Simulated assay, not measured.
Amino acid sequence: MPTDDTAALSEAIRGVVWDATRRLRQESEGVTDVPLAQQAVLRRLDSAPGLTSAELARAEFVRPQSMNATVAAMRRQGLLESRVGQEDARRRELRLTTEGRAALGQVRATRADWLQVRLEETLTATERAALGEAIVLLRRVVDDAPSGDQGT
């Protein structure tokens, strides 16, 4: 594929990401009882503890009402706790509980096992290194950065 054709490269990346996401979801179905929406919240709060429900909704591209329902269910299940913000008492910050961390660990182990095996079975060490380099570039593309700040 010519790398200077950004439209084709964009479409190829979208296709691979879609297929990978679908396959990872498929591999975790039936292994854990944590629904996919809750898995996303667990991962997000693990990497950014203290987000509010509204911030989670924006980050996950869902409606606030949907996120509120997900968060309420997770709180009832003991996966999340809500705390008053230290700097703003009106802010309700969400954090993982011990049970939430355990559920996230189970989800990650399930996905990691399948993906790790596939990486080892299908790619050489050189190809895995190249994939690692590509991930750094993809991360740069998808991470939020102000317009005009192109990784400088």
Score class of each variant (00 low, 15 high):
121 E>N: 07
13 I>M: 11
108 R>P: 02
41 V>G: 03
47 S>T: 03
113 D>S: 09
15 G>F: 11
13 I>P: 01
86 Q>Y: 01
59 A>Q: 08
53 S>Q: 06
71 V>T: 09
71 V>R: 06
79 L>E: 06
29 E>G: 00
77 Q>K: 15
115 L>E: 03
127 E>W: 09
145 A>M: 11
93 E>M: 06
90 R>V: 00
146 P>W: 15
113 D>L: 13
76 R>N: 00
117 V>M: 11
110 T>I: 11
140 R>A: 13
2 P>Q: 10
17 V>H: 05
63 R>C: 04
59 A>R: 13
64 P>W: 04
34 V>A: 10
103 A>R: 14
123 L>E: 02
24 L>W: 08
55 E>V: 00
5 D>A: 04
45 L>D: 00
131 L>G: 02
93 E>W: 04
70 T>F: 12
107 V>G: 11
118 R>W: 13
113 D>C: 05
134 A>P: 01
103 A>S: 13
150 Q>V: 07
92 R>C: 00
49 P>Q: 03
123 L>R: 07
67 M>W: 06
53 S>P: 00
144 D>C: 07
82 S>D: 02
43 R>W: 05
29 E>H: 10
28 S>C: 09
18 W>M: 15
2 P>F: 11
41 V>Y: 08
19 D>T: 10
56 L>W: 07
149 D>G: 01
60 E>T: 03
3 T>E: 12
76 R>T: 00
47 S>P: 00
37 A>S: 13
24 L>D: 03
77 Q>I: 00
99 E>H: 12
149 D>Q: 11
27 E>G: 09
131 L>D: 01
105 G>L: 14
73 A>D: 05
62 V>M: 12
110 T>F: 11
104 L>F: 08
139 R>Q: 12
88 D>A: 01
50 G>Q: 02
5 D>R: 07
149 D>I: 07
135 I>L: 15
119 L>G: 03
148 G>S: 03
152 T>D: 08
109 A>Y: 09
64 P>E: 10
70 T>I: 12
65 Q>E: 09
84 V>Y: 09
73 A>T: 04
25 R>M: 13
21 T>G: 14
100 G>R: 05
94 L>W: 07
39 Q>N: 02
60 E>Q: 15
27 E>P: 11
16 V>Y: 14
83 R>V: 04
11 E>H: 15
43 R>P: 00
47 S>W: 05
143 D>C: 05
43 R>C: 05
142 V>Q: 03
74 M>Y: 07
76 R>C: 00
80 L>A: 05
102 A>W: 10
27 E>A: 14
133 E>H: 15
107 V>W: 14
25 R>T: 08
99 E>V: 00
119 L>M: 10
44 R>H: 04
47 S>I: 05
67 M>I: 02
67 M>L: 08
21 T>K: 14
149 D>C: 09
6 T>G: 01
131 L>A: 07
127 E>V: 09
21 T>V: 12
130 A>I: 02
143 D>W: 15
133 E>Q: 15
111 R>F: 05
63 R>P: 04
75 R>A: 01
130 A>P: 07
141 V>C: 10
1 M>A: 10
20 A>V: 13
50 G>A: 01
14 R>I: 08
124 T>E: 14
51 L>I: 00
45 L>H: 07
36 L>S: 04
65 Q>S: 02
141 V>W: 15
45 L>P: 02
49 P>N: 02
144 D>A: 14
78 G>K: 15
84 V>Q: 13
152 T>V: 09
24 L>T: 04
19 D>C: 10
58 R>K: 06
19 D>W: 12
140 R>K: 15
